[in-house]
Design a protein around this nucleic acid. Structure first.
Length: 511
RNA sequence: GGCGCAUUCGUCUAGUGGUUAGGACGCUGCCCUUUCAAGGCAGAGAUCACGGGUUCGAGCCCCGUAUGCGCUACCA
């Protein structure tokens, strides 16, 4: 595919995911990544991973690996990036310092940027004073903007620490196109002379991302709309360099239930926790796609391939969406019902084997769990699962013999305690005498008990159900009993009969 | 404080000047049924944030207001 020549005049679509290793990425951030990826795949272009590690103080270890793990889980493969190679590397910005220095020098020479020697202390007191006076425009006061060129050059040569600031036009309007909102106008007078190159020689995000997006031939930039205020800054930078601005879309934020922007501080969790909670990557992706994008008024379930085919920037929203966890649950259930028995088994297994404290089966159940045994019944719970994390609870009685339940559960609403006991005893003996242990034989036997007692089948089934599983809600009874086998069923019924006999005594004396 | 973005059922959304404002999640009820799910059907739920215009006609266009969110660092 990739060596098919591009005959059309349209430039190749290249999008990127440019995370900074300052914290784990949450699900809202991954939506932006997913849209970028979809765009690249839809147009047969490339998706690039670039690491924006330009903040020496805040970069954290291990974050990048987590990020890549998250991408892998969702199968959002990238064509270029760390470990993947590519002709536009290096893909760590910290490895590109020379490149930024080169372009900074170029733009300094053109006079679009100037050295600023102000100390952080001065900037801090400046800010405080501006705030105190309630000034309309806060920000740098451009003190160093008017230092004579010669003097500035001398001080730089003398080794005085400095940053490079962008020389924003004092008047005029910067007009830019946002792919979602159309034309946007920004009043230059409100912009400040932002730092492009820090005193440690590292670029700021603004400078590095513009330089890299251009050098890496990025055609479409998708980012959160918290970047909207700095859009003119970037636009100006592009024009100073004489470069073409990529198609830029500012996506609305994803909010939590509390209506606040999803972030590390607002309960937003890294994507991988959804893996740990038993969500399917395709369901997560489908849900994410619909958070801010819709194909039409009806369609909801989209495979990744369908999303690639149908996704378009034009139908992306500009208004923020809340993250609705309940809806994700529903959608995950839809996907679980669609997978094969093999997939189901493989997905459920690790969740059952987790320690009890982490939601797995009771620690008394021996690990590893027998795959074939699991495979023999897990389909019974397929339509009952919202997430794979539900599996341990749902399948508990297939693994545990000592069932813990209130004996009262054995007595269905439509029968009294004596009747329940009698039904269980009769059921037990009927099942004991069964020639064949199969679905129809068991059902016939139990219905026979009901007929003989002249009661409905329901209460009889319920008594046996609770005796055998300890639950009132289970998969179909016959299928369940078949899996458990006659021995286990009869033993559990014996236990149930004993329990019923115990509570039977006071019940009779009160009458 | 300044600047910006946004605003259709509780939630995700369809809608691009004329619709009984549609769908989905969730909720309620009924059906199916050995329970629970799943499935089917039905229902409640939106004076389209508010106020002005433009127009024969506005959820859709324009202007205000309100509310929410965001930005306002040598962080991204």
């Amino acid at each position: 595919m990739s060596n098919v020549p591009n005959f059309s005049n349209a430039p190749v679509v290249r999008t990127r995911f440019a995370p900074s290793p300052t914290g784990e990425m949450h699900i809202g951030g991954f939506r932006t990544v997913f849209y970028s990826w979809l765009l690249a795949r839809k147009h047969g272009g490339q998706f690039i991973l670039r690491i924006e590690d330009t903040d020496q103080a805040r970069s954290k270890e291990g974050v990048i690996n987590k990020l890549i793990e998250g991408l892998n889980w969702l199968s959002l493969n990238f064509d270029e990036g760390p470990n993947a190679g590519g002709q536009f590397g290096p893909y760590y910005q910290s490895d590109r310092l020379g490149i930024y220095a080169h372009y900074a020098a170029q733009i300094l020479e053109k006079g679009h940027v100037y050295p600023c020697f102000c100390s952080e202390e001065r900037l801090e007191t400046l800010r405080q004073e501006q705030q105190k006076r309630g000034l309309a425009t806060t920000g740098y006061d451009r003190k160093c903007r008017n230092i004579p060129e010669k003097e500035a050059a001398q001080r730089m040569a003398d080794g005085e620490p400095y940053v490079l600031r962008l020389k924003i036009p004092v008047t005029g309007v910067t007009v830019l196109q946002d792919a979602l909102r159309g034309e946007m106008k920004f009043n230059n007078a409100l912009l400040e002379d932002s730092v492009m190159l820090k005193s440690d020689g590292y670029p700021t995000y603004h400078f590095a991302s513009v330089v890299d997006d251009h050098l890496m031939k990025i055609s479409h930039v998708l980012r959160g709309d918290e970047w909207l205020p700095s859009f003119p800054l970037h636009g100006l930078l592009y024009s100073y360099f004489g470069w073409e601005i990529p198609v830029t879309a500012h996506l609305p934020v994803v909010m939590g239930d509390d209506g606040k922007k999803l972030s590390k501080r607002h309960g937003a969790e890294p994507v991988l926790v959804y893996k740990d909670r038993g969500y399917l990557p395709d369901a997560t992706l489908n849900f994410l796609a619909l958070l801010g994008w819709a194909y039409d008024s009806e369609s909801e379930i989209f495979s990744v391939d369908e999303l690639i085919a149908n996704f378009s920037l034009e139908r992306v929203h500009t208004s923020p969406a809340k993250f609705d966890a309940t809806r994700l649950q529903w959608m995950n259930g839809v996907y679980i019902r669609k997978i094969s028995l093999d997939e189901l088994t493989e997905n459920v297994l690790p969740f059952l084997e987790k320690p009890e404290a982490e939601g797995g089966l009771p620690d008394s159940v021996q690990r590893p769990i027998n795959r074939d045994y699991l495979r023999s019944f897990i389909h019974l719970d397929q339509e009952r699962m919202k997430t794979f994390a539900d599996a341990a609870f749902l399948t508990n009685f297939f693994f545990v013999d000592d069932l813990d339940y209130l004996p009262e559960l054995l007595i269905d609403k439509k029968i009294d305690s004596a009747g329940a006991l009698q039904a269980l005893r009769m059921s037990r003996s009927a099942l004991t005498n069964l020639a064949e242990w199969d679905h129809d034989s068991i059902e016939h036997a139990l219905r026979g008990v009901a007929a003989e007692m002249n009661v409905k089948a329901g209460p009889v089934f319920m008594g046996v159900r609770v005796a055998v599983t300890g639950r009132k809600e289970t998969p179909p009874l016959m299928e369940t009993m078949l899996v458990l086998g006659r021995e286990r069923c009869l033993r559990r019924m014996d236990t149930a009969i004993q329990r019923l006999e115990k509570i039977q005594v006071p019940a009779e004396t009160t009458q």
